[in-house]
Design a protein around this nucleic acid. Structure first.
Lengths: 147, 147
DNA sequence: TTGAAAATATTGAATATTCAAGAATTGAAG
DNA sequence: CTTCAATTCTTGAATATTCAATATTTTCAA
């Protein structure tokens, strides 16, 4: 009997592919909702992270919103132009820049949050409560086990 | 009692974010392995889809490998230069181009497959057999329910 | 204290992706 | 048949991302 081989598994059965596909689909839906306010998903993430009111360094932010450093810098430049966020030099470590959300940013963030909640509710409806929370649990644990 | 609100759920609890994070992590690992052969993940996907030996139109391919049309065209241009794949005009519908994998492409694809299998096995080890198949199942069903 | 190494953020050039327009072919209605 | 809309793919310009290099500040060992 031949040794069972996984080498010609169709692409659609690879975990990496399923994740990419699901991510693409969910992201597309979210993008569609947020486009009502003309804001890309990454900017919503940034606003959401900053909305705790604390100052976050660029490095911290980049990690949290899944962007690499130079990309974040340029996106923040745009958001500063739009007066959604602002930079403050960290007094304790002057290499760092602390990012803060502005009042305008807070207002926008609230609107975006409710658009995002709409989507999550839509997913809950079509996909189910149980599946959703189970999926979240598994994803968290996958992420954990990858570090 | 206040109405329970999901509007200030931390970003890390959103399904869209968890998917993005997991996708990023797994993709990074896969990228690292495939970089041994100097091939981006998307090219591996293309080779894998074409490795059934049939001709696939650009539209079909774009859908299958999660790239939009112009991006795919340009990536295919590179792969044609590298003689990994080749174009044939579809005799039944001359608007279409059918893509085929070359012999050189097949050889490369085999090497890439085994690198990818390495990764899947690594995931199985650290994450577990049960979790992996359960996660795959849930992802498939999420993708289904999104169409 | 000094000087070298590490950490942090930005910049500019190279590369890649996307959007909108174009070219070729097919389908289908009049 | 003819013409007009739809489909398929490619192209070029605009935009975004990435890589490598730079500037600044901090850390730490000698």
């Amino acid at each position: 009997m031949a040794k069972p081989s996984k080498e010609n598994t169709p692409i659609t059965e690879h975990l990496a592919y399923l994740l990419a596909q699901a991510n693409r689909e969910i992201n597309r839906q979210l993008e569609l909702r947020l486009s009502k306010e003309g804001v890309p998903v990454e900017q919503w993430r940034i606003l959401k992270v900053l909305s705790d009111g604390d100052g976050h360094s660029m490095g911290e932010l980049a990690e949290a919103v899944l962007l690499n450093h130079p990309t974040l810098t340029k996106m923040i430049d745009r958001m500063v132009s739009d007066t959604l966020v602002y930079r403050v030099q960290d007094p304790n470590d002057r290499r760092k820049v602390l990012m803060f959300i502005s009042d305008r940013g807070k207002v926008l963030c609230k609107k975006l949050n409710s658009l995002a909640v709409d989507q999550e509710e839509h997913i809950l409806e079509s996909y189910g409560d149980k599946s959703t929370s189970e999926l979240k649990r598994l994803l968290e644990s996958l992420i954990d086990s990858s570090n």
